[in-house]
Every structure is written in structure tokens, then in C-alpha cells.
Design a protein around this nucleic acid. Sequence first.
DNA 1: CACTTTCGTTTACACGTGTAATCTTCTAAT
DNA 2: ATTAGAAGATTACACGTGTAAACGAAAGTG
Lengths: 125, 125
Amino acid sequence: MSGADISEAESLVMQQLWKRSPQTAESIHDALGPDAGWQVATVKTLLNRLLRKGAVRANKDGRRFLYEPLLERDQWLLQESSGLLRRLFDGRIAPLVAHFSRHRRLSARDVRDLKRLLQEIEDGR
Amino acid sequence: MSGADISEAESLVMQQLWKRSPQTAESIHDALGPDAGWQVATVKTLLNRLLRKGAVRANKDGRRFLYEPLLERDQWLLQESSGLLRRLFDGRIAPLVAHFSRHRRLSARDVRDLKRLLQEIEDGR
DNA sequence: CACTTTCGTTTACACGTGTAATCTTCTAAT
DNA sequence: ATTAGAAGATTACACGTGTAAACGAAAGTG
């Protein structure tokens, strides 16, 4: 549940929790690595905001907190992507694919994957 | 061109300009209708921000300005959607479709459209 | 010409976000 | 017990965004 949505930076933290949980702020920071370029303090801020938004839960473990996701990854994916489809493509998915195709953004692999997918759907999923 | 990206509200103004251009602030406001619930002043603010971002151009027509898009709709669509794909689905499109399928978000029409599309691609477009 | 209407320009202001630093409070070690 | 180090909590702060209102200039009206 939890209706409020999550910012870009917050979602990077969630990604780590979805990969592995529960985790401490420290370990999330490490998992993000220097690629993110964040201080631990930043990760903590984000975690607190996620707490307020009800997207994660924290359990005290000694002196530390262990965080785990409440918001489900699948739900988030769906929210984000159907939001985009609604805003840009009239809520439908085919126009998106068509757009990519028209702009040569579909690789051979994409096409292959899509074909297989449709086949599976046809076969009753 | 113009790298800076456009906010949600700004994009609604752009949508109108992409539909019809050039247009005055006033006519954009009317076209948006009460659905948007914006004052004309708000539309003007957004237009000015779009100007600063280089997404639109304005030509004086008597006492008014006529605005027209510089940023192309196709480019914007591509930016937005490949951004999302990158952030959520490893940059590939098939996983997005798969996700929708798994969550029963593909209508019969979607499936039909996708199949036709793939057929067209196969036939060398 | 003075006044009103109409545009555009400038200024406003709260809220979310990115990105921490600092303060506070425990716990652990000497 | 005192003190240092670690973890969380509080505070900060600039920038973008949504959403205008206020101000100023120009043009039309009487």
C-alpha cells in the first residue's frame, strides 16, 4: 500500500532494499557504492523520508535500525510505468513500442523478446 | 535541440502547442480548459519558463505573443520514455511489456496492436 | 487627453528534492 | 565513571515546480 510516491533518489535506496533486506543504512550506502556519490547521511535522510511515506519499515537491532521495504517493487514499477503511459501514450503500450520502432530504438533482441512474449500470451500465458 | 527537460505542468502546455501552433497564452489557456484549473497567469509563467529552457519560441503579433514549440514532440517522447525504461527496466522494452502482461494490464487491443506492429517490423516496416 | 482594459514582466511563496552537516544520545572501551 | 566513537535525529539550504498575484506599459475608448 502507501499512496505517496517516491522520488528518484529515494527509489535508488528502495532498489537496494528490494535486492536485499533487511539492511542497515550503512550497508545500503555501501551497496550503492561510490557510483551514487552519496554520504551516509544522505542515505539516512532518504530512509527517513521513505519511513514517513510508509514505503519502508525499520526495526531496531541493537543500536542500529534494520530497514525493509513495505512498498512492493512490482507495485512501484506498475505505478511508474502506467503513469508514463497515461501521460504520454494515451495509456496504451503499443504506441510506445511503435514510437521506439519508428525511431530505431528496438534492437533485434527487443523484437525477439517481444515476439516470444506475445506467443506466450497467445498460448494462454 | 535544447537539453533541459520539461516539467509535468510545462508539458501540458507543450501538448497544446504540439496540437496547434502558433498560439497565444490566452488560447492555450482556453484550450486547456477548466480541466487543468489554471489561471491565465499560470500559463504565462509556464510559457516563460519554457522560453528560458528553449523549448518554445515567441513572436510578437501586435500586442500579443504567439508561441510555437521548438522542442519536438517526438524527441520529448523519446527522452521521457527511454528515461523510464533505463531507470526501471534496464533500458529494454520487453521487460516492461512483460510486466504489464504479468499484471494483466494488457488489453486484447494492446496485444492485437503489438502483434501487428511486430509483423510490420518483420516485413521490413 | 484621461481612463480603462489588456498583455506581458516581475515578484511571491510554499512544498518537494537532493544533498548533506551538526547535534544528541547511546554504547563500548579504558 | 569518563570519554570517545557510532548511530540516529534535527536542522539546513539551494533549486525546481506549481500556482499565482501585483505591477507596469501599451492600446483602445469616450
